[in-house]
């Protein structure tokens, strides 16, 4: 009897232990570490000192603002693969070719993508030569603080939308074809078909893509930033991840980096909880 009551705990113990030992315990150490000092103050408690320094650091504020910018750009990052998947589903001429072409960048590493675009977007690079042929002035894609963040985000979307495209195509395969046929018989235009038939039928897929794209943007742009801008120009392309790496590796401020990591963790936790709530609410509707 007693053994039976213990059984469930024994059975979940390995999983719980792994999570506690490899996830939660290091997390606790990291948070604890963020309340200590750096350099001469190594190991001594400094209370909220690191957090106050973060709040006063314009560079960290820029990095958080850029997170906000990414959230604002999220609809674009979702709309592009959605639209292209729609075209493929509606069998535009050559849709088989496009399907593989669109997916291709997803298999390239961010470092390679960054290096390619560094060449393409250089001040005397091919894109500016092309613009000059049309009489447009050269744009300093990676050297202008007002443009660089958009450039890097654009490249990130280009490099990763293939994955979302595949998810969308999978969603389309569950779409009821009779609805589309009915719309066609009724003479609905392409825009109306998308708005009234395709989007409502794909709500779950669109939400899933929203969540995964968001996570991708917040956690995996480091490689591109490292190769393309190094956080510059003028610190305009810093993201929290890059800031953490910079403080720990370049400035030798591990405790400050821990504090920044904790802030990033809380931001991700809030975003994650919001998304869970959102998903659950729509799940109930179905």
């Amino acid at each position: 009897m007693r053994a039976e009551r213990l059984a469930p705990y024994v059975l979940v113990a390995p999983a719980v232990l792994i999570i506690v030992a490899l996830r939660l315990w290091p997390l606790a150490l990291g948070v604890n570490f963020s309340f200590t000092g750096d350099g001469d103050l190594n190991g001594t408690p400094v209370g909220l000192g690191n957090y106050l320094e973060l709040a006063a650091d314009p560079l960290f504020r820029v990095s958080l603002r850029n997170v906000g910018l990414l959230v604002l750009l999220l609809p674009v990052a979702v709309a592009i693969p959605g639209l292209l998947a729609t075209f493929i589903y509606l069998r535009v001429p050559g849709h088989r070719v496009y399907r593989s072409v669109y997916f291709f960048p997803a298999v390239l590493s961010p470092v390679i993508v960054g290096a390619i675009f560094n060449l393409l977007l250089g001040y005397d690079g091919p894109l500016n030569s092309l613009l000059a042929a049309f009489g447009a002035g050269p744009v300093d894609w990676l050297g202008d603080p007002g443009i660089a963040m958009f450039t890097v985000t654009g490249v990130h979307i280009w490099a990763t939308f293939g994955m979302a495209l595949v998810v969308f195509l999978a969603g389309f395969s569950t779409l009821d074809a009779t609805l589309l046929d009915a719309a066609r018989v009724d003479g609905a235009s392409l825009a109306r078909t998308i708005w009234h038939v395709i989007i409502p039928s794909l709500t779950r897929t669109i939400q899933f893509v929203f969540v995964t794209t968001m996570i991708g943007m917040l956690t995996s742009m480091f490689g591109l930033l490292f190769v393309m801008t190094s956080g510059g120009p003028e610190g305009s392309t810093y993201l929290p991840e890059y800031y953490i790496w910079h403080q720990q590796g370049q400035m030798n401020r591990p405790a400050l980096a821990s504090a920044a990591s904790t802030v990033l963790f809380v931001v991700m936790l809030v975003v994650g909880l919001l998304q869970i709530t959102l998903l659950r609410r729509t799940g109930r509707q179905d």
Partner: peptide
């Protein structure tokens, strides 16, 4: 997360 934030005070390395 909240507990971690409160608990961490000093003494690390």
């Amino acid at each position: 997360a909240a507990a971690l934030a409160v608990a961490g005070c000093g003494s690390a390395t």
